[in-house]
Design a protein around this nucleic acid. Sequence first.
DNA 1: GTTGTGTTTTCTGTATACATCAGTATGTCC
DNA 2: GGACATACTGATGTATACAGAAAACACAAC
Lengths: 248, 248
Amino acid sequence: MKSVNTDVAYNYIRKRILSGEYPPGHALMTELLANEIKVSRTPVRDALRKLETDGLVTIQAHLGASVKKMQLKEFREMCDLRLALESHAAGLAAINRTEADLSEIQFALEGMRRLTKEIAAAPDEQPLINDLVREDVRFHIAVMTAAKNELMKKEILRLHLLNRVVSGSAVGEKFAVKKSELDARRLVVLEKHNDIFTAIQRSDPAAAKREMEFHLQELIDHNLRLMSRSESGVIARELTPEELAYSS
Amino acid sequence: MKSVNTDVAYNYIRKRILSGEYPPGHALMTELLANEIKVSRTPVRDALRKLETDGLVTIQAHLGASVKKMQLKEFREMCDLRLALESHAAGLAAINRTEADLSEIQFALEGMRRLTKEIAAAPDEQPLINDLVREDVRFHIAVMTAAKNELMKKEILRLHLLNRVVSGSAVGEKFAVKKSELDARRLVVLEKHNDIFTAIQRSDPAAAKREMEFHLQELIDHNLRLMSRSESGVIARELTPEELAYSS
DNA sequence: GTTGTGTTTTCTGTATACATCAGTATGTCC
DNA sequence: GGACATACTGATGTATACAGAAAACACAAC
Protein backbone atom coordinates (compact mmCIF):
# COMPACT_ATOMS: atom_id res chain seq x y z
CA MET A 1 0.00 0.00 0.00
CA LYS A 2 3.03 2.24 0.02
CA SER A 3 3.31 3.71 -3.42
CA VAL A 4 5.37 6.71 -4.34
CA ASN A 5 3.03 9.54 -3.41
CA THR A 6 2.01 7.99 -0.13
CA ASP A 7 5.66 7.66 0.79
CA VAL A 8 6.38 11.22 -0.20
CA ALA A 9 3.61 12.47 2.06
CA TYR A 10 4.65 10.11 4.85
CA ASN A 11 8.26 11.24 4.82
CA TYR A 12 7.30 14.88 4.47
CA ILE A 13 5.06 14.88 7.53
CA ARG A 14 7.23 12.55 9.57
CA LYS A 15 10.30 14.68 9.05
CA ARG A 16 8.48 17.77 10.24
CA ILE A 17 7.17 16.03 13.33
CA LEU A 18 10.60 14.71 14.24
CA SER A 19 12.25 18.06 13.64
CA GLY A 20 9.75 19.73 15.91
CA GLU A 21 8.31 21.90 13.17
CA TYR A 22 4.96 20.32 13.90
CA PRO A 23 4.90 20.29 17.70
CA PRO A 24 2.72 17.91 19.74
CA GLY A 25 -0.92 18.88 19.41
CA HIS A 26 -0.39 20.53 16.02
CA ALA A 27 -3.40 19.94 13.78
CA LEU A 28 -2.70 18.05 10.56
CA MET A 29 -5.35 18.91 7.99
CA THR A 30 -5.43 16.74 4.93
CA GLU A 31 -6.31 19.40 2.40
CA LEU A 32 -3.66 21.82 3.64
CA LEU A 33 -0.97 19.15 3.62
CA ALA A 34 -2.11 17.90 0.24
CA ASN A 35 -1.61 21.36 -1.23
CA GLU A 36 1.79 21.73 0.39
CA ILE A 37 3.02 18.36 -0.81
CA LYS A 38 1.32 18.75 -4.19
CA VAL A 39 -0.57 15.49 -4.02
CA SER A 40 -4.22 14.74 -3.41
CA ARG A 41 -5.82 14.12 -0.03
CA THR A 42 -5.88 10.34 -0.50
CA PRO A 43 -2.15 9.63 -0.10
CA VAL A 44 -2.03 12.20 2.71
CA ARG A 45 -4.72 10.29 4.54
CA ASP A 46 -2.78 7.07 4.01
CA ALA A 47 0.36 8.70 5.33
CA LEU A 48 -1.42 9.97 8.43
CA ARG A 49 -2.76 6.48 9.01
CA LYS A 50 0.72 5.07 8.88
CA LEU A 51 2.03 7.76 11.19
CA GLU A 52 -0.74 6.88 13.59
CA THR A 53 0.50 3.30 13.76
CA ASP A 54 3.99 4.65 14.40
CA GLY A 55 2.47 6.39 17.37
CA LEU A 56 3.40 9.85 16.13
CA VAL A 57 -0.09 11.00 15.20
CA THR A 58 -3.53 10.79 16.74
CA ILE A 59 -6.60 10.49 14.55
CA GLN A 60 -10.17 11.01 15.68
CA ALA A 61 -13.16 10.40 13.46
CA HIS A 62 -14.52 13.60 12.00
CA LEU A 63 -12.08 15.61 14.08
CA GLY A 64 -8.98 15.02 12.03
CA ALA A 65 -5.38 14.23 12.83
CA SER A 66 -2.90 15.93 15.11
CA VAL A 67 0.65 15.32 16.27
CA LYS A 68 0.54 13.00 19.26
CA LYS A 69 0.46 14.75 22.58
CA MET A 70 1.53 12.35 25.25
CA GLN A 71 0.27 12.47 28.80
CA LEU A 72 2.68 11.81 31.61
CA LYS A 73 0.95 8.54 32.44
CA GLU A 74 1.28 7.29 28.91
CA PHE A 75 4.88 8.41 28.76
CA ARG A 76 5.66 6.39 31.86
CA GLU A 77 3.97 3.36 30.36
CA MET A 78 5.95 3.75 27.17
CA CYS A 79 9.20 3.96 29.07
CA ASP A 80 8.34 0.83 30.97
CA LEU A 81 7.53 -0.94 27.74
CA ARG A 82 10.89 0.04 26.36
CA LEU A 83 12.59 -1.10 29.55
CA ALA A 84 10.98 -4.52 29.28
CA LEU A 85 11.88 -4.98 25.64
CA GLU A 86 15.34 -3.52 25.59
CA SER A 87 16.55 -5.36 28.69
CA HIS A 88 15.19 -8.58 27.30
CA ALA A 89 16.97 -7.84 24.04
CA ALA A 90 20.21 -7.30 25.95
CA GLY A 91 19.81 -10.75 27.46
CA LEU A 92 19.25 -12.23 24.02
CA ALA A 93 22.26 -10.35 22.68
CA ALA A 94 24.46 -12.06 25.26
CA ILE A 95 23.29 -15.40 23.88
CA ASN A 96 23.09 -14.77 20.16
CA ARG A 97 25.83 -12.24 19.50
CA THR A 98 28.42 -13.00 16.85
CA GLU A 99 31.95 -11.63 16.82
CA ALA A 100 30.86 -9.06 14.27
CA ASP A 101 28.10 -7.90 16.61
CA LEU A 102 30.62 -7.54 19.41
CA SER A 103 32.89 -5.43 17.23
CA GLU A 104 30.02 -3.17 16.32
CA ILE A 105 29.02 -2.68 19.96
CA GLN A 106 32.60 -2.08 21.00
CA PHE A 107 33.10 0.40 18.19
CA ALA A 108 30.17 2.48 19.41
CA LEU A 109 31.43 2.20 22.97
CA GLU A 110 34.92 3.43 21.99
CA GLY A 111 33.33 6.34 20.18
CA MET A 112 31.40 7.28 23.29
CA ARG A 113 34.49 6.98 25.45
CA ARG A 114 36.48 9.27 23.18
CA LEU A 115 33.70 11.84 22.92
CA THR A 116 33.01 11.82 26.65
CA LYS A 117 36.64 12.70 27.28
CA GLU A 118 36.67 15.38 24.62
CA ILE A 119 33.50 16.95 25.95
CA ALA A 120 34.91 17.11 29.47
CA ALA A 121 37.83 19.13 28.09
CA ALA A 122 36.04 21.22 25.51
CA PRO A 123 34.55 24.68 26.05
CA ASP A 124 31.87 24.41 23.36
CA GLU A 125 30.15 21.09 23.86
CA GLN A 126 27.11 21.24 21.64
CA PRO A 127 28.44 19.78 18.37
CA LEU A 128 30.28 17.08 20.28
CA ILE A 129 27.17 16.26 22.29
CA ASN A 130 25.24 15.58 19.12
CA ASP A 131 27.99 13.17 18.12
CA LEU A 132 27.79 11.52 21.51
CA VAL A 133 24.06 11.03 21.21
CA ARG A 134 24.61 9.49 17.80
CA GLU A 135 27.13 7.02 19.20
CA ASP A 136 24.80 6.26 22.08
CA VAL A 137 22.03 5.38 19.65
CA ARG A 138 24.50 3.34 17.64
CA PHE A 139 25.40 1.39 20.76
CA HIS A 140 21.80 0.54 21.58
CA ILE A 141 21.05 -0.39 17.97
CA ALA A 142 24.09 -2.65 17.89
CA VAL A 143 22.88 -4.46 21.00
CA MET A 144 19.41 -4.93 19.54
CA THR A 145 20.89 -6.19 16.30
CA ALA A 146 22.96 -8.71 18.23
CA ALA A 147 19.78 -10.01 19.88
CA LYS A 148 18.74 -11.42 16.48
CA ASN A 149 15.08 -10.60 16.78
CA GLU A 150 13.96 -8.26 14.03
CA LEU A 151 10.47 -7.81 15.39
CA MET A 152 11.78 -6.76 18.76
CA LYS A 153 14.32 -4.44 17.21
CA LYS A 154 11.67 -2.75 15.14
CA GLU A 155 9.43 -2.24 18.12
CA ILE A 156 12.22 -0.85 20.27
CA LEU A 157 13.28 1.54 17.53
CA ARG A 158 9.71 2.75 17.28
CA LEU A 159 9.68 3.46 21.00
CA HIS A 160 13.06 5.19 20.82
CA LEU A 161 11.73 7.55 18.19
CA LEU A 162 8.58 8.31 20.12
CA ASN A 163 10.64 8.93 23.21
CA ARG A 164 12.84 11.32 21.29
CA VAL A 165 9.93 13.36 19.99
CA VAL A 166 8.19 13.60 23.32
CA SER A 167 11.11 14.26 25.63
CA GLY A 168 12.89 16.27 22.96
CA SER A 169 10.14 18.83 22.79
CA ALA A 170 9.53 18.76 26.51
CA VAL A 171 13.13 19.31 27.52
CA GLY A 172 13.95 21.58 24.65
CA GLU A 173 15.32 24.35 26.76
CA LYS A 174 18.22 23.25 28.90
CA PHE A 175 18.23 23.91 32.58
CA ALA A 176 21.02 25.55 34.45
CA VAL A 177 23.02 22.51 35.43
CA LYS A 178 26.70 22.72 36.27
CA LYS A 179 29.03 21.35 33.60
CA SER A 180 30.87 19.27 36.19
CA GLU A 181 27.59 17.57 37.07
CA LEU A 182 26.85 16.73 33.46
CA ASP A 183 30.37 15.46 32.88
CA ALA A 184 30.09 13.23 35.93
CA ARG A 185 26.77 11.90 34.70
CA ARG A 186 28.22 11.14 31.28
CA LEU A 187 30.98 9.15 32.92
CA VAL A 188 28.45 7.08 34.85
CA VAL A 189 26.50 6.39 31.66
CA LEU A 190 29.71 5.36 29.95
CA GLU A 191 30.51 2.94 32.75
CA LYS A 192 27.09 1.38 32.50
CA HIS A 193 27.46 0.92 28.77
CA ASN A 194 30.78 -0.73 29.40
CA ASP A 195 29.19 -3.10 31.91
CA ILE A 196 26.52 -4.03 29.39
CA PHE A 197 29.13 -4.64 26.74
CA THR A 198 31.32 -6.89 28.90
CA ALA A 199 28.28 -8.89 30.02
CA ILE A 200 27.35 -9.50 26.39
CA GLN A 201 30.96 -10.25 25.56
CA ARG A 202 31.25 -12.96 28.21
CA SER A 203 27.84 -14.38 27.17
CA ASP A 204 26.18 -13.66 30.47
CA PRO A 205 22.50 -13.02 29.62
CA ALA A 206 21.34 -12.47 33.19
CA ALA A 207 23.97 -9.81 33.79
CA ALA A 208 23.41 -8.15 30.41
CA LYS A 209 19.72 -7.94 31.09
CA ARG A 210 20.23 -6.66 34.62
CA GLU A 211 22.74 -4.01 33.58
CA MET A 212 20.55 -2.80 30.74
CA GLU A 213 17.52 -2.70 33.01
CA PHE A 214 19.43 -0.67 35.55
CA HIS A 215 20.81 1.67 32.91
CA LEU A 216 17.43 2.36 31.36
CA GLN A 217 15.69 2.76 34.68
CA GLU A 218 18.21 5.41 35.61
CA LEU A 219 17.74 7.12 32.26
CA ILE A 220 13.98 7.07 32.58
CA ASP A 221 14.05 8.45 36.11
CA HIS A 222 16.35 11.19 34.92
CA ASN A 223 14.03 12.11 32.05
CA LEU A 224 10.96 12.07 34.24
CA ARG A 225 12.70 14.32 36.73
CA LEU A 226 13.59 16.77 33.96
CA MET A 227 10.06 16.69 32.69
CA SER A 228 8.43 17.40 35.97
CA ARG A 229 10.74 20.42 36.21
CA SER A 230 9.86 21.48 32.70
CA GLU A 231 7.11 24.03 32.39
CA SER A 232 6.58 23.36 28.73
CA GLY A 233 3.49 21.37 29.59
CA VAL A 234 3.84 19.26 26.51
CA ILE A 235 3.40 16.15 28.54
CA ALA A 236 1.58 17.79 31.40
CA ARG A 237 -1.86 16.62 32.30
CA GLU A 238 -4.64 18.15 30.26
CA LEU A 239 -6.55 20.78 32.16
CA THR A 240 -10.16 19.97 32.92
CA PRO A 241 -12.73 22.48 31.69
CA GLU A 242 -13.06 23.87 35.21
CA GLU A 243 -9.33 24.27 35.57
CA LEU A 244 -9.15 25.93 32.19
CA ALA A 245 -11.72 28.44 33.30
CA TYR A 246 -9.47 29.36 36.22
CA SER A 247 -6.24 29.53 34.29
CA SER A 248 -7.45 31.74 31.45
CA MET B 1 -10.28 8.30 11.11
CA LYS B 2 -12.62 5.50 12.13
CA SER B 3 -16.00 6.39 10.82
CA VAL B 4 -18.91 4.00 10.53
CA ASN B 5 -18.21 2.38 7.18
CA THR B 6 -14.53 1.92 7.86
CA ASP B 7 -15.39 0.16 11.09
CA VAL B 8 -17.94 -2.03 9.39
CA ALA B 9 -15.35 -3.14 6.86
CA TYR B 10 -12.71 -3.58 9.56
CA ASN B 11 -14.90 -5.78 11.72
CA TYR B 12 -16.19 -7.74 8.74
CA ILE B 13 -12.73 -8.69 7.51
CA ARG B 14 -11.21 -9.13 10.96
CA LYS B 15 -13.94 -11.52 12.02
CA ARG B 16 -13.37 -13.68 8.98
CA ILE B 17 -9.64 -13.79 9.49
CA LEU B 18 -10.00 -14.77 13.14
CA SER B 19 -12.60 -17.41 12.35
CA GLY B 20 -10.31 -18.94 9.79
CA GLU B 21 -12.66 -18.25 6.90
CA TYR B 22 -9.86 -16.24 5.32
CA PRO B 23 -6.83 -18.47 5.92
CA PRO B 24 -3.25 -17.15 5.98
CA GLY B 25 -2.17 -16.17 2.48
CA HIS B 26 -5.73 -15.52 1.34
CA ALA B 27 -5.83 -12.57 -1.06
CA LEU B 28 -7.92 -9.61 0.04
CA MET B 29 -9.01 -7.61 -2.99
CA THR B 30 -10.49 -4.24 -2.28
CA GLU B 31 -13.12 -4.24 -5.00
CA LEU B 32 -14.38 -7.72 -4.16
CA LEU B 33 -14.61 -6.92 -0.46
CA ALA B 34 -16.22 -3.57 -1.20
CA ASN B 35 -18.99 -5.32 -3.13
CA GLU B 36 -19.50 -7.89 -0.39
CA ILE B 37 -19.68 -5.31 2.38
CA LYS B 38 -21.67 -2.89 0.22
CA VAL B 39 -19.33 0.04 0.69
CA SER B 40 -16.82 1.64 -1.62
CA ARG B 41 -13.15 0.70 -1.89
CA THR B 42 -12.00 3.65 0.21
CA PRO B 43 -13.19 2.41 3.62
CA VAL B 44 -12.07 -1.11 2.69
CA ARG B 45 -8.58 0.22 2.05
CA ASP B 46 -8.64 2.01 5.38
CA ALA B 47 -9.76 -1.18 7.10
CA LEU B 48 -6.98 -3.19 5.49
CA ARG B 49 -4.50 -0.57 6.63
CA LYS B 50 -5.70 -0.91 10.18
CA LEU B 51 -5.57 -4.69 9.99
CA GLU B 52 -2.01 -4.40 8.76
CA THR B 53 -1.05 -2.50 11.87
CA ASP B 54 -2.73 -5.22 13.93
CA GLY B 55 -0.37 -7.60 12.21
CA LEU B 56 -3.17 -9.63 10.68
CA VAL B 57 -2.72 -8.49 7.09
CA THR B 58 0.21 -7.90 4.77
CA ILE B 59 0.07 -5.16 2.16
CA GLN B 60 2.45 -4.77 -0.75
CA ALA B 61 2.34 -1.82 -3.09
CA HIS B 62 0.58 -2.65 -6.34
CA LEU B 63 0.28 -6.28 -5.28
CA GLY B 64 -2.55 -5.89 -2.84
CA ALA B 65 -3.34 -7.24 0.58
CA SER B 66 -3.44 -10.77 1.93
CA VAL B 67 -3.96 -12.46 5.27
CA LYS B 68 -0.64 -12.55 7.07
CA LYS B 69 1.30 -15.74 6.53
CA MET B 70 3.88 -16.07 9.24
CA GLN B 71 7.19 -17.77 8.74
CA LEU B 72 8.56 -19.96 11.50
CA LYS B 73 11.34 -17.46 12.20
CA GLU B 74 8.89 -14.62 12.63
CA PHE B 75 6.65 -16.76 14.78
CA ARG B 76 9.55 -17.49 17.09
CA GLU B 77 10.36 -13.81 17.30
CA MET B 78 6.78 -12.97 18.11
CA CYS B 79 6.69 -15.56 20.87
CA ASP B 80 9.83 -14.14 22.35
CA LEU B 81 8.37 -10.67 22.23
CA ARG B 82 5.34 -11.90 24.08
CA LEU B 83 7.53 -13.66 26.61
CA ALA B 84 9.44 -10.46 27.31
CA LEU B 85 6.33 -8.35 27.70
CA GLU B 86 4.11 -10.73 29.58
CA SER B 87 6.72 -11.77 32.10
CA HIS B 88 7.56 -8.13 32.71
CA ALA B 89 3.85 -7.46 33.15
CA ALA B 90 3.65 -10.26 35.72
CA GLY B 91 6.41 -8.56 37.67
CA LEU B 92 4.54 -5.28 37.53
CA ALA B 93 1.35 -7.01 38.60
CA ALA B 94 3.06 -8.22 41.76
CA ILE B 95 3.84 -4.61 42.58
CA ASN B 96 0.73 -2.78 41.44
CA ARG B 97 -2.08 -5.27 42.01
CA THR B 98 -5.07 -4.21 44.07
CA GLU B 99 -7.26 -6.57 46.06
CA ALA B 100 -9.81 -6.44 43.26
CA ASP B 101 -7.13 -7.52 40.76
CA LEU B 102 -6.24 -10.45 43.01
CA SER B 103 -9.86 -11.54 43.20
CA GLU B 104 -10.15 -11.43 39.44
CA ILE B 105 -7.01 -13.50 38.97
CA GLN B 106 -8.06 -15.99 41.61
CA PHE B 107 -11.52 -16.26 40.08
CA ALA B 108 -10.03 -17.28 36.73
CA LEU B 109 -7.69 -19.67 38.49
CA GLU B 110 -10.55 -21.35 40.35
CA GLY B 111 -12.42 -21.69 37.09
CA MET B 112 -9.44 -23.39 35.51
CA ARG B 113 -9.04 -25.71 38.47
CA ARG B 114 -12.66 -26.78 38.33
CA LEU B 115 -12.62 -27.32 34.56
CA THR B 116 -9.33 -29.22 34.63
CA LYS B 117 -10.86 -31.66 37.10
CA GLU B 118 -14.07 -31.98 35.10
CA ILE B 119 -12.18 -32.59 31.90
CA ALA B 120 -10.11 -35.34 33.49
CA ALA B 121 -13.36 -37.12 34.36
CA ALA B 122 -15.43 -36.32 31.30
CA PRO B 123 -15.68 -38.51 28.19
CA ASP B 124 -16.46 -35.66 25.79
CA GLU B 125 -13.95 -32.95 26.47
CA GLN B 126 -14.35 -30.51 23.60
CA PRO B 127 -16.97 -28.10 24.97
CA LEU B 128 -15.23 -28.04 28.34
CA ILE B 129 -11.88 -27.40 26.70
CA ASN B 130 -13.23 -24.27 25.05
CA ASP B 131 -14.32 -23.11 28.49
CA LEU B 132 -10.89 -23.88 29.86
CA VAL B 133 -9.21 -21.86 27.14
CA ARG B 134 -11.53 -18.98 27.94
CA GLU B 135 -10.61 -19.10 31.62
CA ASP B 136 -6.95 -19.33 30.69
CA VAL B 137 -7.24 -16.17 28.62
CA ARG B 138 -9.16 -14.54 31.45
CA PHE B 139 -6.32 -15.37 33.82
CA HIS B 140 -3.68 -13.81 31.62
CA ILE B 141 -5.83 -10.73 30.99
CA ALA B 142 -6.38 -10.33 34.71
CA VAL B 143 -2.63 -10.40 35.31
CA MET B 144 -2.00 -7.80 32.60
CA THR B 145 -4.74 -5.62 34.01
CA ALA B 146 -3.16 -5.83 37.46
CA ALA B 147 0.14 -4.61 35.97
CA LYS B 148 -1.50 -1.20 35.44
CA ASN B 149 0.09 -0.48 32.10
CA GLU B 150 -2.52 -0.04 29.39
CA LEU B 151 0.02 0.26 26.59
CA MET B 152 1.65 -3.00 27.56
CA LYS B 153 -1.69 -4.73 27.95
CA LYS B 154 -2.78 -3.62 24.50
CA GLU B 155 0.42 -4.83 22.92
CA ILE B 156 0.26 -8.21 24.65
CA LEU B 157 -3.36 -8.68 23.64
CA ARG B 158 -2.38 -7.94 20.04
CA LEU B 159 0.28 -10.63 20.20
CA HIS B 160 -2.14 -13.09 21.82
CA LEU B 161 -4.54 -12.62 18.93
CA LEU B 162 -1.83 -13.03 16.33
CA ASN B 163 -0.63 -16.12 18.07
CA ARG B 164 -4.12 -17.53 18.09
CA VAL B 165 -4.61 -17.01 14.37
CA VAL B 166 -1.28 -18.49 13.41
CA SER B 167 -1.09 -21.47 15.71
CA GLY B 168 -4.84 -22.00 15.50
CA SER B 169 -4.72 -22.60 11.78
CA ALA B 170 -1.47 -24.52 11.98
CA VAL B 171 -2.54 -26.94 14.67
CA GLY B 172 -6.11 -27.17 13.50
CA GLU B 173 -6.17 -30.91 13.29
CA LYS B 174 -5.36 -32.58 16.56
CA PHE B 175 -2.70 -35.21 16.76
CA ALA B 176 -3.16 -38.60 18.32
CA VAL B 177 -2.08 -37.88 21.85
CA LYS B 178 -3.17 -40.01 24.78
CA LYS B 179 -5.81 -38.41 27.00
CA SER B 180 -3.80 -39.22 30.09
CA GLU B 181 -0.90 -37.22 28.67
CA LEU B 182 -3.10 -34.21 27.99
CA ASP B 183 -4.66 -34.39 31.43
CA ALA B 184 -1.23 -34.49 33.02
CA ARG B 185 -0.13 -31.51 30.99
CA ARG B 186 -3.19 -29.54 32.01
CA LEU B 187 -2.38 -30.24 35.64
CA VAL B 188 1.14 -28.91 35.18
CA VAL B 189 -0.20 -25.75 33.53
CA LEU B 190 -2.63 -25.30 36.39
CA GLU B 191 0.18 -25.59 38.91
CA LYS B 192 2.19 -22.95 37.08
CA HIS B 193 -0.74 -20.59 37.05
CA ASN B 194 -1.13 -21.13 40.73
CA ASP B 195 2.55 -20.32 41.29
CA ILE B 196 2.15 -17.11 39.32
CA PHE B 197 -0.90 -16.17 41.32
CA THR B 198 0.70 -16.75 44.72
CA ALA B 199 3.79 -14.78 43.67
CA ILE B 200 1.59 -11.84 42.70
CA GLN B 201 -0.43 -12.29 45.87
CA ARG B 202 2.60 -12.07 48.14
CA SER B 203 3.93 -9.10 46.13
CA ASP B 204 7.03 -10.88 44.91
CA PRO B 205 7.78 -9.34 41.49
CA ALA B 206 10.94 -11.36 40.82
CA ALA B 207 9.13 -14.63 41.43
CA ALA B 208 6.05 -13.58 39.46
CA LYS B 209 8.22 -12.65 36.53
CA ARG B 210 10.26 -15.84 36.76
CA GLU B 211 7.21 -18.08 37.00
CA MET B 212 5.48 -16.37 34.10
CA GLU B 213 8.64 -16.58 32.02
CA PHE B 214 8.96 -20.27 32.75
CA HIS B 215 5.30 -20.91 32.03
CA LEU B 216 5.34 -19.12 28.69
CA GLN B 217 8.62 -20.65 27.62
CA GLU B 218 7.13 -24.07 28.20
CA LEU B 219 4.00 -23.10 26.29
CA ILE B 220 6.01 -21.76 23.38
CA ASP B 221 8.21 -24.82 23.19
CA HIS B 222 5.11 -26.96 23.19
CA ASN B 223 3.54 -24.98 20.37
CA LEU B 224 6.71 -25.02 18.32
CA ARG B 225 6.96 -28.77 18.76
CA LEU B 226 3.38 -29.20 17.57
CA MET B 227 4.03 -26.97 14.62
CA SER B 228 7.09 -28.75 13.45
CA ARG B 229 5.00 -31.93 13.54
CA SER B 230 2.21 -30.24 11.65
CA GLU B 231 2.18 -30.75 7.92
CA SER B 232 -0.17 -27.86 7.31
CA GLY B 233 2.77 -25.76 6.22
CA VAL B 234 1.04 -22.59 7.22
CA ILE B 235 4.06 -21.43 9.07
CA ALA B 236 6.54 -23.55 7.17
CA ARG B 237 9.38 -21.90 5.33
CA GLU B 238 8.51 -20.68 1.88
CA LEU B 239 9.83 -22.94 -0.83
CA THR B 240 12.53 -21.50 -3.03
CA PRO B 241 11.84 -21.49 -6.77
CA GLU B 242 14.09 -24.51 -7.20
CA GLU B 243 12.36 -26.43 -4.46
CA LEU B 244 9.01 -25.53 -5.93
CA ALA B 245 10.10 -26.98 -9.24
CA TYR B 246 10.85 -30.26 -7.50
CA SER B 247 7.70 -30.45 -5.43
CA SER B 248 5.19 -29.77 -8.18
C1' DG C 1 -24.23 41.16 28.79
C1' DT C 2 -25.40 36.51 28.36
C1' DT C 3 -27.59 32.60 26.63
C1' DG C 4 -29.63 29.76 23.27
C1' DT C 5 -30.64 28.61 18.68
C1' DG C 6 -30.15 28.50 13.80
C1' DT C 7 -27.07 29.11 10.01
C1' DT C 8 -22.73 28.89 7.83
C1' DT C 9 -18.36 27.24 7.20
C1' DT C 10 -14.88 23.97 7.06
C1' DC C 11 -13.26 20.12 7.78
C1' DT C 12 -13.47 14.87 7.26
C1' DG C 13 -15.66 10.51 5.17
C1' DT C 14 -17.23 8.28 1.04
C1' DA C 15 -17.96 7.17 -3.69
C1' DT C 16 -16.27 7.00 -8.12
C1' DA C 17 -13.63 7.91 -12.32
C1' DC C 18 -9.14 7.82 -14.05
C1' DA C 19 -3.99 6.62 -14.08
C1' DT C 20 -0.68 3.36 -13.38
C1' DC C 21 1.58 -0.80 -12.51
C1' DA C 22 2.36 -6.13 -12.33
C1' DG C 23 1.45 -10.24 -14.37
C1' DT C 24 -0.27 -12.78 -18.26
C1' DA C 25 -1.28 -13.98 -22.74
C1' DT C 26 -0.53 -13.44 -27.44
C1' DG C 27 1.99 -13.06 -31.45
C1' DT C 28 6.01 -12.46 -34.14
C1' DC C 29 10.72 -13.33 -35.19
C1' DC C 30 14.62 -16.33 -35.19
C1' DG D 1 9.76 -25.00 -31.36
C1' DG D 2 11.55 -21.47 -28.33
C1' DA D 3 12.56 -16.68 -26.90
C1' DC D 4 11.57 -12.12 -26.83
C1' DA D 5 8.67 -8.07 -27.41
C1' DT D 6 4.17 -6.17 -27.22
C1' DA D 7 -0.57 -5.69 -25.95
C1' DC D 8 -4.02 -6.93 -22.70
C1' DT D 9 -6.18 -7.74 -18.29
C1' DG D 10 -7.11 -6.90 -13.74
C1' DA D 11 -5.70 -5.27 -9.84
C1' DT D 12 -4.06 -1.15 -6.99
C1' DG D 13 -2.86 4.03 -6.52
C1' DT D 14 -4.55 8.68 -7.15
C1' DA D 15 -7.46 12.58 -7.91
C1' DT D 16 -11.68 14.68 -7.24
C1' DA D 17 -16.57 15.54 -6.46
C1' DC D 18 -20.07 15.07 -3.24
C1' DA D 19 -22.24 14.01 1.44
C1' DG D 20 -22.22 14.67 6.16
C1' DA D 21 -20.62 15.90 10.74
C1' DA D 22 -18.54 19.13 13.97
C1' DA D 23 -17.21 23.65 15.11
C1' DA D 24 -17.69 28.58 14.52
C1' DC D 25 -20.41 32.31 13.94
C1' DA D 26 -24.20 35.47 14.04
C1' DC D 27 -28.27 36.94 15.63
C1' DA D 28 -32.24 37.17 18.39
C1' DA D 29 -34.38 36.77 22.92
C1' DC D 30 -34.04 37.44 27.67
